[in-house]
């Protein structure tokens, strides 16, 4: 017979880093800045995501409570739109187009290369939180096919080689920023 809780468990529990407490002040600030709240749920959640990089559950619950609407309503909205994220994401969001116009111009080779150099697939985030990767339907820049978007910038007419260079430049920028 084995004990339900071993000494080992207790030791682990004691040694574990205290969990980071989420600072919810920004949520209060965002809600307060919207005087007319009716219909403003989506912009409010977009601002919350801007602050945290994703929408933490506590922040979503607080927003619901402050707005006087059901939490389920907020989660219904959060899960409907693809641009909301409920878990932490990378410092950079890399979106690759898998639409037809990009597909027929070699989009697949760009996607394959991205998955290889990043080491992650659709919807995943690298372990060091450098980047998250998503395949999307069409970025509305089909004239530049094949296209990817890094954060807010579109990069077009790509091939695997150019893709490598863009990711390298992004990594360099990222490590410089983090060194600051």
């Amino acid at each position: 017979m084995s004990a339900d809780v071993t000494l080992e468990d207790v030791r682990e529990e004691l040694e574990r880093e205290p969990e980071e407490v989420l600072d919810l002040a920004p949520v209060y600030r965002i809600i307060e800045s919207h005087r007319e709240m009716k219909g403003m749920l989506i912009p409010i959640l977009q601002e919350v995501q801007q602050v945290y990089g994703y929408v933490p559950e506590e922040a979503a619950n607080l927003a619901a409570d402050l707005m006087g609407i059901y939490r389920s309503q907020v989660f219904g909205v959060l899960t409907f739109y693809t641009q909301f994220h409920l878990t932490p994401r990378g410092r950079h969001i890399i979106r690759a187009c898998s639409g037809t116009a990009c597909h027929v111009r070699g989009g697949k080779t760009v996607i394959n290369r991205l998955e290889t150099v990043l080491g992650i697939g659709h919807g995943e985030t690298t372990e060091d939180r450098f980047a998250s990767f998503e395949k999307v339907a069409c970025l509305g820049a089909c004239g530049l096919a094949p296209v990817i978007m890094i954060d807010n910038d579109a990069h077009g007419q790509l091939d695997p080689l150019k893709t490598d260079r863009i990711i390298e430049a992004l990594k360099e920028m990222d490590s410089m920023r983090r060194a600051d």
Binding site: K38, G39, M40, L41, I42, P43, L45, Q46, G76, V77, F80, Y81, T82, Q83, F84, A137
Partner: peptide, 25 residues
Amino acid sequence: VHRGAGAYICGEETALIESLEGKRG
């Protein structure tokens, strides 16, 4: 200006209106 949150259906005019009202599109 209202920024969409990623849903093709919100281009359909009535879904767009639902979305503007803060609901699922």
